Amino acid sequence: MWSPSELSEAEFRLLHRHLRARAPGGASRRGALDTITEEHVLAAVREVRTGRTVSLAAPVDTRTGPDNADPAQHRLTAPAGGKPGESGLEFARDRFAMNIHGDVDSHLDALCHVVYDGTLHGGVPAADVLSPDGASALSVDLARDGIAGRGVLLDIPRLHGVPWLEPGVHVRAEDLAAAEARQGVRVGRGDILLVRVGHRRRREELGPWDVADARAGLHPTALEFLAEREVAVLGGDGNNDTAPSAVRGVAFPVHVLAVHAMGLHLLDHLRFEDLTPICAQEGRWSFLCVIAPLRLPTATGSPVNPLAIL
């Protein structure tokens, strides 16, 4: 149905309409989070066998780099000058600030993050929701009670016998299906799907680069796989989109399809390098996954430290 590599804008809009028509349409406006029921959470808890917890977040990066022009800021505000006195009581205090949607730090994209044709997910007029004070609807507050469910990690470089996918390489639906078969796991309704492309490992071993020009990610047509399986959340160790884009005129097609059309909260720039060897050693690629965004009622996203509990 779709062109093998590059999509025209007309083809992309057809795919967008196709996926939007299949998206969960609950009155709660929580998007695909509605696929995670209490029964799904209880089933995910039964994935826990050893009680081991693993962080899926990268350390917050406060250094300027080719992919981090606006780095997070962290400084000690007390004691003055960072020098405590020799007697009496003092408190060490600090201040933290972040560009939530940067290209390095791990974060969650809310459903108000993507504006396409003047609308947000569900056809909500963006002008009615967004203001200098934030978003009055579809904000990260939809996930204020946390996201807990069955996490499934598909390791695409492992499938192809390489440490990482080179920038510009697309992950397609057939790659996701092949990784399932190789790893002996199947993605299902309400799952938190995590797709490793090796972006983080490449950055750690070779150094940062300008990811706006080149990065590995999902091909837009791979979102059909997610729609068929009715996943609840999509996460990656890059930003889920490939660069250069596979769609002429749309720089972030996966963001548009996932967030705007399908109502998927996205997890960008995670880190799977601690989890992958554990999954390989234990021969299982599913686990309880817990994501707790900050309580930022009108924010378009949040820094996160997702946990895999095995």
Rank of each mutant, 00 (worst) to 15 (best):
W164L: 00
L154V: 04
G283I: 06
L153Y: 01
A222K: 08
L193T: 08
E39S: 10
D155Y: 01
P208R: 07
A78Q: 13
S5Y: 12
A80M: 06
A44I: 06
S245E: 05
R172I: 03
P297Q: 05
A23Q: 03
L7K: 01
L89S: 11
F252A: 11
R17W: 08
V129R: 06
R248K: 13
R203K: 09
A148V: 14
G122V: 06
A110S: 11
W2T: 09
L7A: 02
A57P: 04
V45H: 11
I309F: 08
Q73I: 14
L130C: 00
R17K: 13
C112S: 07
D175E: 04
V259K: 01
A23I: 12
R158Y: 13
P24S: 12
R93M: 12
W2F: 11
L7M: 08
A148W: 01
L264C: 05
N68F: 09
R182L: 06
R284Q: 11
S106R: 02
P297Y: 05
L267F: 06
S87T: 15
G263M: 06
H40N: 13
A110P: 03
E38Y: 02
D241L: 11
T221I: 01
P132G: 13
L257S: 01
G65I: 09
V197N: 04
L15C: 02
A92M: 10
E282A: 15
I36N: 00
G123Q: 11
G249Y: 07
N305E: 14
A21R: 15
A216S: 13
E224M: 09
N68R: 10
A27V: 12
S139G: 02
A21L: 15
E90V: 15
T35L: 15
L294F: 07
K83E: 05
M1P: 07
G25V: 05
H113W: 05
H121P: 00
D103W: 08
T35K: 08
V259Q: 02
P132L: 08
A181Q: 02
L194Y: 03
G122F: 03
G283S: 09
R295K: 14
P66D: 06
V250T: 03
L56A: 01
E11A: 14
A21P: 09
L193F: 12
D128I: 08
A292R: 15
E6N: 14
A258K: 10
G123N: 10
V60P: 02
D70G: 10
G146H: 10
Q281S: 14
G301S: 08
V124W: 04
A43S: 13
A43L: 12
D191C: 07
T276H: 12
L234R: 05
A243Y: 08
D128E: 14
S3Q: 05
R271E: 09
H160Y: 10
G235D: 06
A246S: 15
